[in-house]
Write a protein that binds this DNA or RNA. Structure first.
Lengths: 197, 197
DNA sequence: AATATTTGCTAACATCCGTTAGTATATTAT
DNA sequence: ATAATATACTAACGGATGTTAGCAAATATT
């Protein structure tokens, strides 16, 4: 009889969530079937339901796991006493690190949250909006302090977040450029701009 | 008997493709059903098949329509005699204009192309790869000319494309900032960077 | 060793999906 | 007006999907 293998400090549910993240990333939430997931876990589809309530619960776990980590980091950055530019750089660093260390979950949380069901959906959207507002507030602080150019802060936030979220293509060909180089490049471009002055 | 209303110079198929783009954007390709589409067109599901071959064909039409427009613009920009920075700005302008004028199609082409079936899938991926290479070549030209900083050109391209592709949130609240302001902001940030020097 | 609990399996369900067949009706061409 | 074509409808198909019920085996607890 097949059995879900667990590592130390991890439940069978966590194994399933992790495999689900990989599958949802590859195929999309809707296109990934519970039978696909079962195969990737090494078990029959029905057996999954001894550990989880529903397919949607898997998406909850993934999305809110990611969102909570970002919120936590935002608390930390906000309460620090660095300059606005430094705070922005801290956040960019964190986003890239999350993208590298929890690629599947972050990707799914970014692209598949639409398939959450209420009340999780509205909850998630609210959290996301909050996060962006707090990010924008940091940029506005930088503008007041004359560290940052006079730009539309919410737009800048969207640009930053989507620029970072789009490293998926890089992730596929890992050897081409490593994470540290990538981070340097991103911060150079986003903070310093393309133009050589 | 219901009948698909057409405007001047547009076939019924084009109406369906256009409605499909809106639906695929809203729900995702897999989650959008042909019965949903039929309802939005104002007709029974089976009737759609008098005009199209399959659901996937709708995705082809959308994705390659968008891809062709970008390729065409790239031809035009490449053959011009502007500086590299100017070429980059031309392309950014075009991307934003496309995002504003053909929002649903561009969005779907960006996020749902995974659900294309071969040989369309590989065809699309190749075209996309080509486009990015040509974009990167312009940036590398700018680096050689000392117009642009020494950065990793493919990374810069990904950043630019994803930054622009992420204006979806802006599009939802149209009144907040208009297209021209947005474009200015984006070019300022992406070309000039955040930092005030 | 005996019992209780966890975990997995097979089988099946109701529902939704894309699509086709066959037919009726509206429009266009003759 | 008649014929030909384009368009829409109803009905139904085969298959995939998420999930449940009921039972068997493995593991943990006593």
């Amino acid at each position: 009889m097949a059995r879900i293998k667990i590592e130390k400090n991890s439940s069978r549910k966590e194994v399933i969530v992790s495999k689900a993240a990989a599958l949802f990333r590859e195929k999309g939430f809707k296109a990934a079937s519970m039978r696909d997931l079962a195969e990737s876990v090494g078990v029959e589809a029905a057996s999954l339901y001894n550990h989880i309530k529903s397919k949607t619960e898997l998406l909850h776990e993934i999305c809110f796991g990611v969102a909570n980590r970002f919120m936590h980091k935002m608390d930390e950055v906000e309460s620090g006493s660095n300059s606005a530019i430094e705070k922005v750089e801290q956040l960019i660093h964190f986003h890239i690190a999350e993208m590298v260390n929890h690629y599947e979950e972050v990707y799914v949380s970014d692209r598949e949250w639409k398939h959450l069901a209420d009340p999780y959906l509205s909850n998630f959207q609210t959290q996301r909006r909050m996060y962006r507002k707090r990010f924008a507030a940091i940029i506005e602080e930088g503008i007041r302090n004359k560290e940052i150019k006079k730009i539309d802060a919410p737009t800048a936030v969207l640009i930053l977040l989507h620029a970072i979220g789009g490293i998926e293509s890089w992730h596929r060909s890992t050897q081409k450029i490593n994470a540290s180089n990538l981070t340097d490049n991103m911060i150079t471009i986003l903070v310093g701009g393309l133009e050589l002055k």
